[in-house]
């Protein structure tokens, strides 16, 4: 059990530590790969797809790719806040559906598109708030609570909508999805705005530091007077708010509110967070990382489609990449 071979890797790791500055050391340092997984993955995919199918790099395709990524970027940003507190929000995609249905019904009732948008975001934020309160005050594990709300709000959405899609013919939403400012469509700007706001909140406010402290060691944070329950509730509410923004983008994109859950949105939001170097144990996060992770996953689907790979292979590829990324994360320092 205690043979010399066991000691070898330890010595090697020590040597790596000392010569970290050299490039080879950097490239063999798994922590580097863990922190930059999403960037490395995105660059790798761009190179591979760019060579295999030059259309991938056309301006039109890149614009379409960014447009397609906007919803996932917003959701991954919301999920990041929750994961940073060492929680998880499994109800995210169901909240998007609820937001869409609220939007559709309020609009159909003739209350105006702006009120419809506000109420949609309010509904999903309320779902987040409920998640947070049940987890902290109710002291129930996060995945149980959010799995419960996933099912409950799916049912609520079906009841409210009667299982029927509602057409949303709104000039405002049409403009939101098809209009553009500069080289990018409005959804891309919305996603960029969410990412910027989230980055400022997480890294330039007291709330952000307290959130990371809560995720890192809740007990220690609490002993220093940080109200960890409030922080967690806020994180889930932010996640719900992001689901609301995503539901606006979704309804604008497809032109109707459908009582369908896109489960791949949920899985990909978690995947983007993992790829972005956010620790699933909490306390360590980034906003740009998950945003780039979301871009990478969208690029993967886009590129495979351009290469005429069957859509059946896409979930397989996403799953493999996420598990690989999670493996590499173990070497984060």
């Amino acid at each position: 059990m205690n043979n010399p071979a066991d000691n070898a890797p330890v010595q090697k790791a020590g040597a790596t530590e000392e010569s970290r500055t050299s490039l080879t050391a950097l490239l063999t340092d798994l922590s580097f790969w863990a922190d930059w997984a999403s960037v490395v993955g995105l660059v790798g995919l761009v190179i591979v797809f760019g060579i295999a199918q030059p259309i991938f790099l056309s301006v039109a395709n890149l614009q379409a790719l960014l447009l397609a990524a906007a919803i996932l970027v917003v959701l991954a940003t919301g999920q990041t806040f929750v994961v940073a507190t060492s929680g998880i929000d499994l109800s995210l995609a169901a909240a998007v559906m609820l937001g869409a249905i609220v939007l559709g019904l309020v609009h159909a009732a003739g209350w105006g598109i702006f009120l419809a948008c506000v109420l949609a975001v309010a509904a999903t934020s309320a779902v987040g708030l409920l998640n947070g309160v049940l987890i902290t005050v109710g002291k129930i594990p996060d995945f149980v609570v959010t799995l419960g709300t996933l099912s409950a709000i799916t049912g609520l959405g079906l009841i409210l909508s009667g299982g029927e899609p509602t057409m949303v013919g709104s000039p405002f939403l049409l403009k939101l999805t098809s209009g553009s400012f500069g080289p990018f469509g409005y959804p891309v700007w919305v996603a960029a705005g969410v990412v910027l706001a989230a980055h400022v909140a997480l890294f330039h406010t007291r709330f952000g530091v307290h959130l990371l402290a809560t995720g890192g060691q809740a007990e220690s944070a609490h002993s220093l007077g940080i109200r960890t329950n409030r922080i967690k509730i806020a994180a889930y509410t932010i996640s719900g708010f992001c689901a609301g923004i995503a539901s606006l983008l979704l309804v604008a994109r497809i032109g109707s509110a459908e009582p369908l859950i896109n489960t791949s949105l949920l899985l990909n939001s978690v995947a983007a967070v993992v790829l972005g170097g956010v620790s699933l144990f909490g306390g360590r996060a980034s906003i740009l990382g998950p945003a780039i992770g979301a871009l990478m996953l969208t690029a993967l689907v886009n590129g495979l489609t351009l290469l005429s790979v069957s859509a059946f292979y896409q979930p397989l590829a996403v799953g493999a990449i996420v598990v690989l990324a999670a493996l590499i994360m173990r070497y984060q320092r």
Partner: peptide, 18 residues
């Protein structure tokens, strides 16, 4: 029970009195 491992030295020194 005192320091938060994942935060930096500065963040720990100023935790909750940033």
């Amino acid at each position: 029970l005192s320091l938060i491992d994942e935060l930096t030295v500065v963040q720990n020194l100023f935790l909750n009195r940033e």
